[in-house]
Design a protein around this nucleic acid. Structure first.
Lengths: 88, 88
DNA sequence: ACCATATTTCGGTATTTTCCTAAATAACAA
DNA sequence: TTGTTATTTAGGAAAATACCGAAATATGGT
């Protein structure tokens, strides 16, 4: 769970998650939303993947990223435990 | 809001918030729960304060830390926006 | 004024994070 | 095989973070 919170600490990574909330996207499509270099973005993908916040699937030459909702929900629950909400 | 997510990224800071969820505590009381040096902990307090996740009040020679529930709730809402929950 | 306690600030080092360019890999088409 | 596109890995520099011990500050008591 620590990896999840660390992953959420960077604004670009949160923005990526926000994009994926609408629909799964290839690395290239995601990259179109940012001005940073692709290798930098790739590094952010790795962080999100290690935290299991996203999953990947190769389709030919592109790689599709999608949100892992179950981990997102676990993280939300952990956060609610911190915030003191009545929870799930 | 970025400062809030960065503040949440460190396990010790999350643990501090968890402690404060039960009741307000002095810096010293909080320190009793950890093995790290006090100056280090003081640095974590600063991060939490800058994120406005906690407020402080001096009582004589001790300083009382308490959770700032409103910011905690804002953060929770921001997180829910990411996670895709129905909100509020 | 002096002492004791609580907490923070200072100075410095080690580690981690972030970002980039260049090069490597993967898949596919010609 | 050669070329093209999509993406990642490698290498490395700059900045930020985390940590500690020593010193400073703040408060209250004697």
């Amino acid at each position: 769970m620590n990896e999840v919170f660390e992953a959420l600490a960077h604004p670009i990574r949160r923005e990526i998650l926000k994009l994926l909330r609408k629909r799964a996207m290839s690395a290239g499509e995601i990259a179109e939303h940012f001005t940073i270099a692709k290798p930098t973005l790739s590094g952010h993908f790795t962080v999100l993947k290690n935290a299991e916040l996203v999953t990947t699937e190769r389709q030919g030459t592109t790689i599709i990223y999608r949100l892992n909702m179950s981990v997102m929900e676990e993280a939300l629950a952990a956060f609610m435990a911190l915030a003191g909400a009545k929870g799930k």
